[in-house]
């Protein structure tokens, strides 16, 4: 895979193993295009979370090349990684909210980390919490929130800084179907604003809810391309031309 013009993420023959175990990801190659919407599917243990960890720079691969925003992120010094991470929003499967911070402060965290003045934080964070239906729970600690509420806080935190890439690991796993649909609509809205969205899910019904989405399927650490998402140019562009 060469080039990189017009791409936001490129994986080239990426492999990942933990310790001396067998590879959990093997020869993974794909390209993500700006403004696209991707579903990453696969059975439990297929390597979805591992792939996402590589995408949100929580892990370096054992081999291969990963380019993000035009830069080889494998070889950049670790001091340079925060600048890349601030361009990526992440919804973790286990939410990973900071337990002693309120819902408001959890959502405000990416803005504070990015150095946004306090006077410019209050309103967007409050609006975002209202928007995900947590208008009454601004001051609630994660432990007092239900699973669905925690998930909504996690999603609000992931999107508050309007990332260029949004990576979501099973973001609708703990919410009812109505809320799952609303959250998908939020991701779509973000996608329309230019954010590249990658949603890992094993819920096949969800895939049909976003008609313009592309699907990547992981099977025992290897990527398959059922919709031509990984082709160059991707299927959608061929279809549109």
């Amino acid at each position: 895979m060469s080039g990189g013009e017009g791409t936001i993420v490129q994986f080239d023959n990426v492999g990942l193993r933990y310790g001396t175990e067998r590879e959990v990801l093997s020869d993974v190659s794909f390209t993500l295009y700006p403004g696209s919407f991707y579903f990453l599917t696969g059975a439990s243990g297929a390597g979805k979370t591992s792939l996402l960890r590589l995408l949100y720079l929580a892990q370096r691969p054992s081999r291969g090349v990963i380019r993000m925003f035009g830069t080889d992120v494998i070889t950049v010094p670790r001091q340079a990684l925060p600048a890349f991470r601030r361009r990526i929003g992440v919804v973790f499967q286990d939410f990973r909210l900071v337990p002693h911070l309120s819902a408001f402060d959890n959502v405000a965290l990416p803005l504070r980390v990015s150095g946004v003045p306090e006077s410019e934080i209050r309103k967007p964070v409050a609006d975002m919490l209202d928007w995900v239906g947590l208008e009454q729970r601004h001051d609630a600690r994660p432990a007092t929130l239900s699973g669905g509420e925690q998930q909504r806080v996690a999603i609000a935190r992931a999107v508050i800084a309007r990332p260029e890439i949004l990576v979501a690991d099973e973001p609708t796993g703990n919410v009812d179907p109505d809320l799952a649909l609303k959250l998908l609509r939020l991701f779509e809205a973000l996608n329309r604003l230019g954010t590249t969205v990658v949603v890992a899910t094993h819920d096949v019904h969800l895939l049909k809810k976003v008609p313009d989405s592309l699907i990547m399927r992981l099977d025992r650490g290897r990527l398959s391309d059922p919709t031509g998402a990984l082709r160059y140019p991707p299927r959608r562009e061929v279809a549109g031309s």
Binding site: R86, V116, P117, D127, A161
Partner: peptide, 26 residues
């Protein structure tokens, strides 16, 4: 939750070293 996510802001300033107190429990 009908509109596009209007609270999402554009042009967020780059990192300026904010270190709000309270991020870690004291």
């Amino acid at each position: 939750m009908n509109a596009a996510p209007s609270p999402i802001r554009r042009n967020i300033p780059r990192f300026a070293g904010s270190d709000r107190p309270g991020i870690m429990p004291q």
